[in-house]
Simulated assay, not measured.
Amino acid sequence: MTIQMFEKPLGMRDDFPFIAKKKADLRTNGTTIIQQAGYELLQTPTLEYYETIGKISAIADNALFKLLDSQGETLVLRPDMTSPIARVAASKLLKEKMPVRLGYYSTVFRAQKREGGRPAEFEQMGVELIGDDSLYADAEVIILAGNIVKNLGIKSSRFVIGHTQLLQLILEDFGLNQEQIEQVRSTFVSKNSVGFETLTNQLPIESSRVESFISLISTTTIEEWQQWIDPHNAKQTALYEEMKKLKKILDRSGLSDLVTYDLSFNSHMTYYTGLVFEVYAAGSGFPLGNGGRYDGLMKQFGLEVGATGFGLRVDRLLELISAVPERQDHTLILFDEQNEDAAYDEAQKLRAQAKRVTLQFAPAVMAIDKFSNHFSEVLRMEGVN
């Protein structure tokens, strides 16, 4: 295979100045909101051990970037942020601060098999609340995700909320074994309604309950969930009551019209063990982010604590913020060797007034007129005594 000089690895992208600035602004706005909510920012290494983070991560093995270090250990480029932060939170330094609130803005890497427009490197912004197993923690992260999206000026956002554990208990009530439950979950994750109905005909479900089973994929309100709750099953009842309380909190926070309660909703991230959610918005065919409760993941790091959080895809947020570069005030000062001192003084004076100024040696520019068109104001000081 011949690699061309300007070719990039599969899934890798360049960020041109307009996008780079948008990302910088988004990072500032988003992390400010995260810190105002009481979260501390942290950064984990780009490289992690495959035996720990690589295997624990919910990312498929063939989507991991792997390499060997000088000692022969297999490393991976960070595939997500939840697993590394769980590792950090399990350290003695943070374990004594539980519950701990951690936020991040970081790059993650996921290998792509073929060119299909999907990035192999992208930024995520989010939070993890570790050490709190209450529904109030779940409500906090959902509301925070909503606040970030709203602050970025993204309109028509929506949340889809489900519950992994409650769905598991309900599927067991239909007489399914774990292998069959996993098959059902797979159709839910891929949102394959045709595949779900085909699978239903192959499952050992009582004929009188088939219609009820198929209705699992069409719920939109928390009240609709009640038809599958067994009042004699204490665990089901407790989880359903918690979801009703969660709804009250979200309604109080102004999200009542923005949430769909879909009992069949499941995440492809397999470490979620309780409430799960995704964030959508008009204008994007993909979720802007996802989150949920992952108590089971913490056990793999030796901690018996609750944990919940979310991650937002920065590239998808950017697509909705603005597609057109904004024209901003930007002054160009052109100078030559005779008036460099005066040009420098003028630039410093304007910058002291909070103006954006580019100082350019005129003889080095091949096409001054074209170059000057990129600026809102041009001061030509070359040849001025």
Score class of each variant (00 low, 15 high):
residue 82 T to E: 10
residue 117 G to L: 12
residue 99 P to E: 04
residue 28 T to W: 02
residue 328 Q to M: 12
residue 256 S to D: 15
residue 109 F to E: 02
residue 58 A to V: 05
residue 277 F to R: 00
residue 120 A to F: 04
residue 232 H to Q: 11
residue 5 M to D: 15
residue 16 F to L: 15
residue 294 Y to T: 01
residue 258 L to A: 10
residue 175 G to V: 02
residue 136 Y to I: 03
residue 369 D to W: 05
residue 2 T to I: 08
residue 148 I to P: 01
residue 211 E to H: 09
residue 167 L to W: 11
residue 196 F to C: 13
residue 293 R to E: 14
residue 97 K to S: 08
residue 159 F to M: 11
residue 158 R to L: 14
residue 332 L to E: 01
residue 202 Q to H: 06
residue 40 E to Q: 14
residue 74 T to V: 15
residue 171 L to F: 05
residue 218 S to A: 13
residue 168 Q to V: 05
residue 305 V to T: 01
residue 89 A to T: 08
residue 13 R to D: 14
residue 182 E to F: 02
residue 187 T to K: 11
residue 10 L to P: 01
residue 153 G to H: 03
residue 180 Q to M: 08
residue 257 D to H: 15
residue 126 G to M: 00
residue 56 I to P: 04
residue 145 A to T: 01
residue 110 R to H: 09
residue 87 R to G: 07
residue 66 K to S: 12
residue 373 N to A: 06
residue 372 S to P: 06
residue 274 G to A: 07
residue 350 L to K: 02
residue 28 T to V: 04
residue 259 V to T: 09
residue 19 I to Q: 13
residue 99 P to Q: 09
residue 337 E to D: 08
residue 366 M to S: 15
residue 254 G to R: 12
residue 314 V to M: 06
residue 262 D to G: 08
residue 26 L to G: 00
residue 137 A to P: 00
residue 333 I to W: 07
residue 259 V to A: 06
residue 6 F to H: 08
residue 364 A to W: 10
residue 320 L to N: 01
residue 180 Q to T: 04
residue 215 S to N: 14
residue 155 K to S: 11
residue 120 A to S: 15
residue 252 R to H: 13
residue 132 D to F: 02
residue 226 Q to E: 14
residue 186 S to V: 08
residue 360 Q to N: 04
residue 98 M to A: 11
residue 307 A to V: 05
residue 153 G to L: 07
residue 293 R to L: 15
residue 219 T to C: 09
residue 236 Q to P: 09
residue 173 D to Y: 07
residue 87 R to W: 07
residue 210 V to A: 01
residue 226 Q to D: 14
residue 200 T to W: 03
residue 58 A to D: 10
residue 199 L to D: 03
residue 285 G to W: 15
residue 296 G to Q: 15
residue 37 A to H: 12
residue 195 G to C: 09
residue 127 V to L: 12
residue 207 S to G: 03
residue 157 S to M: 09
residue 240 Y to T: 11
residue 132 D to Y: 00
residue 340 E to N: 00
residue 57 S to P: 07
residue 16 F to P: 02
residue 198 T to S: 01
residue 203 L to D: 05
residue 24 A to L: 10
residue 151 N to C: 11
residue 9 P to V: 11
residue 317 L to Q: 08
residue 28 T to G: 04
residue 252 R to E: 14
residue 78 R to D: 02
residue 231 P to Y: 14
residue 227 Q to T: 08
residue 203 L to Q: 04
residue 46 T to V: 13
residue 64 L to I: 02
residue 107 T to R: 10
residue 325 P to C: 02
residue 342 A to Y: 04
residue 152 L to R: 02
residue 339 N to S: 13
residue 3 I to R: 15
residue 43 Q to N: 09
residue 137 A to G: 02
residue 44 T to C: 12
residue 310 F to G: 00
residue 267 S to H: 04
residue 73 E to C: 14
residue 168 Q to R: 11
residue 136 Y to L: 12
residue 241 E to W: 01
residue 116 G to Q: 13
residue 202 Q to K: 10
residue 188 F to A: 10
residue 22 K to T: 03
residue 256 S to H: 10
residue 255 L to S: 12
residue 17 P to D: 15
residue 253 S to W: 06
residue 314 V to K: 00
residue 143 I to C: 03
residue 228 W to Q: 05
residue 144 L to R: 03
residue 10 L to Y: 00
residue 6 F to C: 02
residue 233 N to K: 03
residue 255 L to R: 07
residue 310 F to I: 00
residue 140 E to D: 14
residue 149 V to F: 03
residue 205 I to P: 09
residue 166 L to F: 13
residue 14 D to N: 14
residue 246 L to N: 00
